[in-house]
């Protein structure tokens, strides 16, 4: 217990001292996960919209597939990508293993099903009259699509925040295909794993605090957005 409180005190000191190494890791984490979300969100939302608004054979199967894929363990994604990207693997020539690009690919694979499934839920629950109204008022289907997205923006933002929460905290895939290389592919979760294995708990706890603060911040943003949505209906 004493060890824990001592390590926590040291962690807070580390954070207040603005240890450059810690901030570099934090920046790298955000940079990789933000790029992954930005690349994954547009096609995921488009697929979710297609699944919600159009009927085609195999639609229910696809929805079940995305729902199931939400539960894929990060370490399985890491292992699969490792096998594909390693020098002897089929995509070895791309020389992506142990790069930030490989981490981004891993995180995209991890957040994509979550983005599709949660966006689909948000768009499916959306009143269909919004689409019909936009069309009957002369909108091109592309504009009607953006109108529906705007109307469903609170649900879609929640989907994006949940997906971001998943990838910023995942360790399995980043560790296996990023390689935890200092200044290059070491992010918050892989750094915590490393510091813990070294027994330097203070740095691990400091990074853990950052992850918790970030989760708190994301939730505060989400409730602020939802309260704005509530204000529209008051």
């Amino acid at each position: 217990m004493n060890d824990l409180s001592l390590a926590t005190q040291q962690a807070v000191i580390l954070l207040f001292k603005a240890d450059p190494q810690i901030w570099e890791i934090i920046f790298l984490s955000f940079s990789v996960s933000l790029r992954a979300i930005l690349l994954a969100a547009p096609p995921a939302i488009l697929i979710a919209f297609y699944l919600s608004y159009f009927k085609f054979p195999g639609r229910h199967f696809l929805i079940s597939l995305f729902n199931t894929a939400m539960a894929i363990p990060a370490v399985v994604v890491g292992l699969t990508l490792y096998l594909l990207l390693s020098r002897s693997g089929p995509l070895g020539d791309l020389q992506l293993l142990f790069t930030q690009d490989a981490m981004i690919i891993g995180q995209i694979i991890l957040c994509f099903p979550l983005l599709v499934a949660l966006s689909h839920a948000a768009l499916y629950a959306m009143d269909r009259r919004a689409w019909e109204t936009a069309i009957t008022l002369g909108s091109h289907p592309a504009r009607a699509f953006f109108t529906v997205l705007k109307e469903a923006r609170f649900g879609l933002t929640a989907a994006i925040i949940a997906a971001f929460g998943r990838i910023i905290a995942e360790v399995g895939s980043s560790m296996m295909i990023g390689g935890n290389i200092l200044h290059y592919t070491r992010n918050i979760p892989t750094a915590i794993a490393l510091e813990t294995s070294k027994g330097s708990f203070a740095q691990g706890i400091a990074l853990g605090i950052i992850l918790l603060l970030m989760a708190l911040m994301l939730n505060l943003i989400l409730s602020w957005i939802q309260s704005r949505s509530g204000a529209h209906h008051d």
Partner: peptide
């Protein structure tokens, strides 16, 4: 040429102005 109005019309979020200006 035809504009359809639902039994319970759907108004987009935003002001009355935004809604009328939409089309």
């Amino acid at each position: 040429h035809f504009c359809y109005l639902h039994q319970t019309p759907y108004l987009f979020s935003g002001s009355v102005y935004d809604n009328i200006a939409y089309g």
